[in-house]
Structures are given as C-alpha cells and as structure tokens.
Simulated assay, not measured.
Amino acid sequence: MRRYMILLMLCFASSYSYAQDTIAIKRDALKLMNALKQSDYATFADYTHPNVHNIMGGKEKMIEATKSAMDQAASKGMNFRAATLGAVGKFIPSGNEIYCTIPDTIVMNYEGGYADVPSTLLGISADQGKNWTFISTGTYPRETIIKFFPNLPKDIVIAPQGRIRVHKD
C-alpha cells in the first residue's frame, strides 16, 4: 500500500509540474504579446530573449528599433489589433535551458481591413520553467536560429511561418 501511495504521489507531482510549466510559459507569452499591443516596448524587451538584445546591439537599441518599426507601421495605417496563442508544444531540456514552442498569430489592422500572420514563438527558460523569454521564429530558417541558440534541441519542431491572410472589413 505504501509503495502504491508513493507511486501515486510521484505521478501526481509530475503531471502538476507539467501543468505549472504550461501555465508559466503561456503567462509569459501573453505578457510579451500584451506589451506589444500596449506599446510597452520595455516590457516587450524583458520577455524577449537576451540573444535578440545582443543581435540588435543591446536591450535599449532593441526597444528603440521596436518602437520605430511600430511607429512606421502606424504611419501607414497599420497597428496591432490582437494576438492569439496556440497549444504549448513539448518541453525539451538542452544544456541548462528548457525549450518549447507555441504557435501564435498576430493580427494587424490596416486601412480597409486586417491581416493575420501565423508564426511560432520559441520559448526558452534558464530557470527550470519558472520564467520564459521568447523569439519569434518568423521567417528564419532553422540554421539561422541555431546560430544564435546553439543548444537548440534537434527534436524541437519549429513550424515555418504560415501564409499571411488578408481580410477586408
């Protein structure tokens, strides 16, 4: 009976840990998306992986570039409308990090309608799944992503960017 109880507790603990990981990654991905929607570029940068900051010349330059890109889009009548997240993928440890993917769709308004852009967020946690940072894989081929994330697990599936769908209002 005692062995059965220990086994039952271990099963419950492992499924609870997985549920918590799913909650944490979705929580942080939503913070990333909401920050972009609210033009809170500092928070957006907080949830963007530090390797992206480095690529862009530092966190402050990344914030400036994001603001500039969003301002430029707004000047052309485009703005962020919404974002949706799909089902969280498999958690795969590699080195001192955990990797996971989440399909996402960003919806942008434009004059006369809106467009949705399906992509994949690559989530990376350096603290055993408590906190997550992201990179949108967008149009980057796997070979490019590996250059900046050499510990990227071989078996993680990163879907190619979907077709942009344009809708008229």
Score class of each variant (00 low, 15 high):
residue 81 R to H: 05
residue 52 V to Y: 01
residue 62 M to T: 05
residue 133 T to L: 03
residue 108 M to L: 14
residue 109 N to F: 06
residue 48 T to M: 09
residue 36 L to W: 10
residue 66 T to C: 07
residue 61 K to P: 00
residue 34 N to S: 07
residue 32 L to G: 01
residue 124 I to G: 01
residue 94 S to E: 08
residue 93 P to R: 12
residue 102 I to P: 04
residue 127 D to H: 04
residue 128 Q to K: 15
residue 105 T to C: 11
residue 63 I to E: 09
residue 114 Y to G: 01
residue 102 I to D: 05
residue 14 S to L: 12
residue 78 M to E: 14
residue 59 K to G: 05
residue 103 P to M: 10
residue 95 G to R: 08
residue 58 G to F: 07
residue 112 G to P: 06
residue 93 P to G: 11
residue 15 S to T: 15
residue 118 P to R: 04
residue 10 L to V: 13
residue 113 G to R: 04
residue 72 Q to Y: 10
residue 121 L to N: 07
residue 133 T to G: 01
residue 40 D to Y: 05
residue 37 K to E: 05
residue 92 I to Q: 07
residue 120 T to L: 02
residue 101 T to L: 09
residue 72 Q to G: 11
residue 40 D to N: 15
residue 116 D to Q: 12
residue 56 M to I: 01
residue 34 N to K: 03
residue 34 N to Q: 09
residue 47 Y to T: 03
residue 72 Q to K: 14
residue 114 Y to I: 01
residue 33 M to V: 04
residue 121 L to G: 04
residue 63 I to H: 05
residue 16 Y to P: 00
residue 36 L to Y: 13
residue 31 K to H: 06
residue 48 T to W: 04
residue 89 G to H: 12
residue 39 S to D: 14
residue 89 G to I: 10
residue 123 G to Q: 03
residue 59 K to D: 06
residue 82 A to Q: 10
residue 83 A to M: 12
residue 91 F to V: 11
residue 42 A to D: 12
residue 80 F to H: 13
residue 35 A to I: 06
residue 72 Q to P: 00
residue 38 Q to C: 03
residue 20 Q to G: 00
residue 39 S to G: 02
residue 88 V to M: 07
residue 111 E to M: 10
residue 110 Y to H: 15
residue 13 A to G: 08
residue 12 F to T: 13
residue 99 Y to I: 01
residue 112 G to V: 09
residue 126 A to K: 15
residue 29 A to E: 02
residue 90 K to E: 15
residue 131 N to P: 00
residue 47 Y to V: 03
residue 20 Q to H: 05
residue 22 T to Y: 02
residue 70 M to N: 12
residue 92 I to S: 05
residue 13 A to D: 04
residue 24 A to M: 10
residue 31 K to Y: 08
residue 82 A to D: 15
residue 48 T to S: 14
residue 104 D to S: 14
residue 102 I to G: 09
residue 47 Y to K: 03
residue 22 T to R: 14
residue 34 N to R: 09
residue 97 E to T: 06
residue 117 V to Q: 12
residue 67 K to T: 07
residue 39 S to A: 14
residue 36 L to E: 06
residue 43 T to W: 00
residue 126 A to M: 04
residue 16 Y to N: 07
residue 95 G to C: 10
residue 131 N to A: 06
residue 96 N to Q: 13
residue 112 G to I: 08
residue 39 S to P: 00
residue 101 T to C: 11
residue 111 E to Y: 05
residue 90 K to Q: 15
residue 75 S to V: 03
residue 99 Y to H: 07
residue 23 I to S: 06
residue 73 A to T: 02
residue 115 A to G: 14
residue 116 D to P: 00
residue 89 G to R: 11
residue 36 L to C: 05
residue 66 T to K: 07
residue 66 T to I: 12
residue 92 I to F: 07
residue 82 A to Y: 04
residue 118 P to I: 07
residue 127 D to T: 04
